[in-house]
Structures are given as C-alpha cells and as structure tokens.
C-alpha cells in the first residue's frame, strides 16, 4: 500500500562524493564502569580511546565522547535498535534510535582529504587523522561526524536538514581543479 523506501535528501552522485544510503544508527551512553559488560552484550567493543572506532562485520561503534558512542549498522532495519535494546536489558545506559537523524556520504579518492579541507578545519593528514579515527567536528557551518574508513575514504555523517548544504559545498570543492 505504501512505498516505505527511505528518502534521501542528497541531490547528486559521483565517484568522489557518494550517498551511503540508509544506515542504522543509535546513540549509546553509559558510565565508564559499564563499558565492559555493555560491550559484551552488544558484541562489539566500545572504544575507550578518544576518537577511535571499532568494527565487527556490518556493525561499528564510534567514540564520540567519553560516555557517548554512535553505533552504526550498514543495513537499516526498523527494529534494529529495539533488538539491541533487548540485548541491553538490565544495563545502566541510554540507547536511542537516531537512524534517520543523520544521513551519510562517502568522500573518497585521491582528493578526498583536500575536498573535505574546503570546510573542515582539522588536520586530515594520515598521521593526524589515521584510518579508524572518528570525531564530531564542523564542516563549514554544519556539525558532522567524520570517520576515516580508509587511507583515501571518509564517512561523513550529517544531520538530515543540513545534508543539501553540506553536499553542495562538497560538490563545489570537488569541481575545483
């Protein structure tokens, strides 16, 4: 009866800047003492080191703050977060579904870091921002989560309402020679 496909706000698609499609997302928050047991129940080790990520199959956990992780699942299913919550029954923590709060772009290729440097003030050289590093930061005037998934590939998560703004700026940077 209804076409329940998830709408993407992005306008274009290119090799360097590509939409990553629907992704499951949840914000997990807990106290330091509970990281171990929660990691066990999630089946993924919540990183304790600042700005680092852990991946296990389609799932990843990105450190966003000392008590805050962004859990990602490559394939979005509407009940993914409620199933996770069931695993965490009895744990002292907060788990909130934010799958639709953000949308993701892959920025990739030899010019990936340069394109991002048009709006991101962080040092994106591999020594300062190695593969696996992730952080909230700003891209121009939009807050984003930037995650380096390969030497020449980044995952950029942005709040949905800012998606076209961020995409338009990235495409302008992409068009520069």
């Amino acid at each position: 009866m209804f076409e329940s496909r998830i709408a993407s706000p992005f306008a274009g698609e290119s090799d360097a800047i590509a939409s990553l499609g629907p992704i499951g997302r949840a914000v997990l928050r807990c106290r330091e003492a509970d990281i171990g047991s929660i990691s066990d129940k999630l089946g993924i080790a919540l990183p304790r080191a600042a700005c680092r990520s852990e991946s296990n199959g389609p799932s990843s956990a990105l450190w966003l703050g000392p008590d805050e992780w962004l859990l990602l699942h490559a394939d979005l299913q509407d009940d993914w977060v409620s199933r996770l919550a069931a695993h965490l029954e009895g744990e002292l923590c907060s788990l909130v579904d934010v799958s639709h709060r953000q949308v993701a772009l892959a920025v990739q290729g030899a010019r990936a870091a340069e394109i991002l440097a048009s709006g991101c003030a962080l040092d994106l050289s591999p020594r300062a921002f190695p593969v696996g590093m992730c952080t909230r930061t700003m891209f121009a005037r939009a807050e984003v989560v930037l995650w380096r998934t390969g030497s020449m590939s980044f995952h950029l998560d942005v709040w949905r309402s800012f998606a076209r703004y961020v995409e338009a700026l990235l495409r302008e940077a992409e068009s520069e020679n």
Binding site: S118, R141, S161, Y165, L169
Partner: peptide, 14 residues
C-alpha cells in the same frame, strides 16, 4: 563559498 544559497545553512525538513 558562503554566498547566495550557501551563505548560511538552509535547514530543510523532509
């Protein structure tokens, strides 16, 4: 790049 439509983020709903 902060000019015309990109002067400031235009936040849009679904």
């Amino acid at each position: 790049r902060a000019r015309r439509d990109l002067l400031d983020p235009a936040r849009i709903t679904a």
